[in-house]
Amino acid sequence: MADAQVDGIGGWVVDVIGSIGEVGVGLLIALENVVPPIPSEVILPFAGFSAAQGRISLVGAWVAATLGSLVGAWLLYGLGAFIAYERLHGLAAKRWFLLFNTEDLHRGERFFDRHGSKVVLVARFVPLLRSIVSVPAGVVRMPLLRFTGLTALGSGIWNAIFLYAGYTLGGQWERVEGWMGPVSTAVVVLVAIVCALLVVRQVKILT
């Protein structure tokens, strides 16, 4: 069995899906949205492979994965709504808060007001960002129905692509992680660099 040779997080994913099937797919994808290091690039291809083996339903796995994406996104949207723009504004005004200032916050709010729908949709296809984007959507209180529709559309397409990849690759489903792993790493590094540059700029402004 190809899945018996998988270790680490991948092995855990295999065990969960093998134990509870489509429900496990949904739970793992919901968790992946909240804890990005759990990669959908492993979850979905293996689910597709399992469907090809007749262990689970391909359509059922897609429905469960898309519902899981929505649940995870709603949780992060709720976190953003709890943080609220007013709290962020108060933080941005503090001298010790180095990530962004009040002007940055206003600029970000204007950008999200104009392009928020595109950002939420497109981010669903980008590792890490597909999780992060739900927080600012909640902060600016994007209408929940619009947020849900955009998330369902983007996540549904993403899930379908990777499920189908696993379905067609068969026992070589792990190759998908090999293709996407460098992309995920590059995105994480880019986000870290951007955050570091923002901190450096703020320090220079304050000094």
Rank of each mutant, 00 (worst) to 15 (best):
105 L>G: 04
121 L>M: 09
200 V>R: 14
11 G>Q: 08
99 L>H: 11
12 W>E: 09
77 Y>E: 01
181 G>L: 03
180 M>T: 03
40 S>L: 07
69 S>K: 03
166 G>R: 00
196 A>N: 12
198 L>C: 14
102 T>D: 11
175 R>A: 11
173 W>P: 00
49 F>Y: 11
97 F>A: 02
196 A>E: 14
93 A>L: 08
168 T>W: 07
152 A>W: 06
206 L>E: 14
165 A>S: 11
42 V>I: 11
193 I>Y: 08
48 G>Q: 00
26 G>P: 03
150 L>M: 12
134 S>D: 05
77 Y>I: 03
144 L>I: 10
140 V>L: 07
58 L>A: 08
32 E>I: 12
99 L>R: 09
172 Q>R: 10
69 S>R: 02
177 E>A: 07
122 V>F: 10
18 G>P: 03
143 P>N: 10
83 I>C: 06
180 M>N: 05
87 R>W: 01
76 L>W: 03
178 G>V: 07
197 L>N: 12
48 G>Y: 00
123 A>P: 09
49 F>A: 06
107 R>M: 14
181 G>D: 01
116 G>S: 08
187 V>P: 04
34 V>H: 09
125 F>M: 13
145 L>H: 13
206 L>W: 15
181 G>M: 05
17 I>D: 01
15 D>F: 13
106 H>K: 15
181 G>N: 04
137 A>S: 13
140 V>Q: 02
8 G>F: 12
200 V>Q: 13
19 S>K: 15
100 F>E: 04
39 P>L: 10
81 A>S: 08
124 R>G: 12
96 W>D: 05
80 G>E: 00
44 L>K: 01
168 T>A: 11
91 L>S: 01
140 V>Y: 01
14 V>W: 00
89 H>P: 02
99 L>W: 09
76 L>Y: 04
52 A>M: 07
163 L>F: 10
15 D>S: 15
174 E>W: 01
201 R>T: 12
180 M>V: 06
187 V>M: 09
47 A>G: 06
127 P>L: 09
207 T>K: 15
74 W>Y: 06
163 L>N: 04
207 T>C: 15
157 I>M: 10
8 G>P: 11
187 V>S: 07
38 I>R: 03
156 G>P: 02
67 L>Q: 09
100 F>R: 05
179 W>Y: 10
85 Y>R: 02
177 E>K: 07
144 L>G: 03
199 V>K: 11
94 K>A: 12
91 L>K: 00
187 V>N: 08
103 E>S: 08
31 L>H: 11
20 I>Q: 12
26 G>K: 03
36 P>R: 09
173 W>K: 00
185 T>R: 15
57 S>F: 11
114 R>L: 11
169 L>W: 04
138 G>W: 00
